[in-house]
C-alpha cells in the first residue's frame, strides 16, 4: 500500500440550511489501494453518500483533497470532473441508474463508448455473465429491478474503470436478488482489477468487502 489508488485527506463539506451551514464531512481521511474493496458504513446522515459523490466527481468539496492516482480530483473543474466520470470512476446507484431512452444494449455500452474504449467482446461477455443476453433490445422500464441493477453494473465495468463506486446497490432489491447481484459485482470487479468503494448500511454486504470504514457525524470512527 505504498502508493494508494485513492487518497482522501481531511475532506470537509457542509450544506447550507436555514440556521447556517450544516457540516456533513469534517476531515475525513483514508486511502484505498488498487483492486481493493472497501465498505463505507454509518448511520443515516453520517455523510457516506456525500463522500462517495465527492470522490466520484459528482459533487465538490469545501476543503481537503481527493487524489485518484496522479489526479487531484478536488482541483478539477466541471469539465475535468465530467471526464473523470466518463473513464476512470464509475458509479452504481441504488436506482434511476439507466438512460430510459436507450435500450439495454446501448445502456451497457454507453459509458465505454463515451470514454472511447468500447470493447464489443467485453460487452458481450458482461452481458452473458450478467444474464442480460436475452434482454439487449429491451428498454429499462421493461426490466425488473435486479435486471436493471445488473445492467448498471455491466455498464460500470464495461469502461474498465480504476475505481467503482456503489451507493446502496442492493437497497432496492429483495435479499436473494441483492445477494446474487453482489456476487456478480464482486466477481467482475475482481476480474477487471478495479477498486470498489461501496456505501451501504447492510452488514451482510459490508462483510463481503476486504475493508470496512465506519463514518459517524462526518468523521471516520
Amino acid at each position: 500500500m505504498s502508493t494508494p489508488l485513492l487518497s482522501v485527506r481531511d475532506l470537509q463539506k457542509s450544506f447550507p440550511a436555514a440556521d447556517g451551514p450544516v457540516p456533513v464531512l469534517q476531515g475525513v481521511t483514508f486511502d484505498l489501494a488498487a483492486g481493493q474493496t472497501l465498505a463505507l458504513t454509518g448511520e443515516s446522515g453520517s455523510g457516506k453518500s456525500t463522500l462517495l459523490h465527492i470522490v466520484g466527481g459528482l459533487d465538490t468539496a469545501d476543503g481537503g483533497a481527493v487524489r485518484l492516482g496522479e489526479t487531484e480530483v478536488t482541483a478539477l473543474d466541471d469539465r475535468g470532473r465530467a471526464a473523470l466520470r466518463r473513464s476512470r470512476v464509475s458509479v452504481v446507484f441504488q436506482q434511476f441508474n439507466l438512460i430510459p431512452s436507450l435500450d439495454v444494449g446501448a445502456n451497457l455500452a454507453f459509458q465505454a463508448r463515451l470514454a472511447g474504449r468500447h470493447d464489443p467482446a467485453w460487452c458481450d461477455t458482461l452481458a452473458r455473465r450478467l444474464g442480460l443476453a436475452g434482454h439487449l433490445s429491451k428498454y429499462p422500464e421493461q426490466l425488473s429491478g435486479g435486471q436493471q441493477q445488473r445492467v448498471a453494473i455491466g455498464r460500470t465495468l464495461a469502461v474498465r474503470p480504476e475505481l467503482v463506486l456503489a451507493d446502496e446497490p442492493t437497497g432496492n432489491l429483495d435479499e436473494e436478488t441483492g445477494s446474487r447481484v453482489v456476487d456478480l459485482m464482486l466477481e467482475l470487479v475482481a476480474e477487471t482489477g478495479a477498486a470498489l468503494l461501496c456505501v451501504t448500511h447492510s452488514t451482510a454486504l459490508a462483510s463481503r468487502m476486504e475493508r470496512r470504514l465506519v463514518l459517524s457525524r462526518g468523521r471516520v470512527a
Binding site: 466520484g56 459528482l58 466541471d78 469539465r79 465530467a82 471526464a83 473523470l84 466520470r85 466518463r86 473513464s87 458509479v91 446507484f93 434511476f96 441508474n97 439507466l98 438512460i99 430510459p100 431512452s101 454507453f110 459509458q111 463515451l114 470514454a115 455498464r155
Partner: peptide, 16 residues
C-alpha cells in the same frame, strides 16, 4: 431530471 441525471453522472457536463 431522472432522464438527464444518469447521463450527467456518466460524464456529461450540465452545460453540455
Amino acid at each position: 431530471l431522472p432522464q438527464l441525471a444518469p447521463v450527467w453522472a456518466l460524464g456529461f457536463t450540465r452545460r453540455r
